[in-house]
Every structure is written in C-alpha cells, then in structure tokens.
C-alpha cells in the first residue's frame, strides 16, 4: 500500500524528466552528442525492458536487481526521474522478494518510456 501511495505522489508531483540534466549535458558534450545519447538510450531501452522481463520470468533475482539498477542509472543520468524511480522500485521489490508487484512495475516502465520519448519530442530534445 505504501508503495502505491508513494507512486501516486510521484505521479502527481514528479515530472517525466528534469530538463536540467540534458541541458547541462548539452553544454558539456554539445547538443548533437546529447541527442545521440538520447536516441541510443531510446533504442536500447526496449531491450533493457525485455531483459528485465526475461530475468523476472526466469526467476534470476540477482541479475534482475543488477539490470534494474543499471537501467535506473541510465534513466536518471538523462533526467528521466520517473523512469529511474520505477527501475529502483523493481530493484527493491526484487531484493525484498515482493515479486508479485514487479510485472505491474515493468508495465509502468513501458508506459513511462513512451511518455518520456513524447515529452522529449515535445520539449524539442529530439
């Protein structure tokens, strides 16, 4: 229940992404390169998600945690806070053995990815 509450709060107050990360990244490596990073991320993201699902299905909890942790880092580095938070929730749930909630979180990650890409487009990042 707690998780759901916090998720609700996240949904309401947490933006899809924080533009300051991409802005600073653009300043450092240039906007072309930043766009390149974003595109690469978006290309790889479905594969990451598929891997998470597969690991969940096979019950490889350790690797599931690691993969979720890695995906979280990528998301947060681009400012995709909500995506990052969802990945962290998957990682924590797996560690806590609360596997039943994980499929739902993975579905939300999929949705959030679409939202993130849309937000980037509308924000002129793509």
């Amino acid at each position: 229940m707690k998780m759901i509450e916090s998720e609700t709060i996240d949904r309401t107050i947490t933006p899809i992404y924080a533009p300051k990360y991409l802005k600073r990244l653009g300043e450092i490596v240039g906007y072309e390169m930043t766009r390149d990073f974003i595109q690469q991320f978006l290309e790889l993201a479905p594969k990451q998600l598929a891997a998470l699902r597969q690991l969940f299905d096979t019950g490889d909890v350790d690797r599931l945690c690691s993969k979720a942790h890695q995906f979280k880092s990528e998301c947060l580095q681009l400012g995709a806070i909500r995506l990052g938070n969802l990945c962290e929730q998957v990682e924590n749930l797996a560690k806590q053995g609360k596997y039943e909630v994980i499929p739902e979180k993975l579905a939300k990650i999929e949705t959030e990815l679409i939202l993130f890409e849309a937000a980037l487009k509308s924000g002129g990042q793509l």
Partner: peptide, 17 residues
C-alpha cells in the same frame, strides 16, 4: 562500468574536460 551507454557517456564528458 558494465553499462556501455554509461561508459560512452562518461568517456565523452571526461574527454571534453
């Protein structure tokens, strides 16, 4: 880092530095 994307990102940033 085991994440190629992160590796690439850090390389680009650090080289810029």
């Amino acid at each position: 880092d085991d994440d190629p994307w992160i590796r690439r990102l850090l390389v680009q940033i650090l080289r810029r530095y």
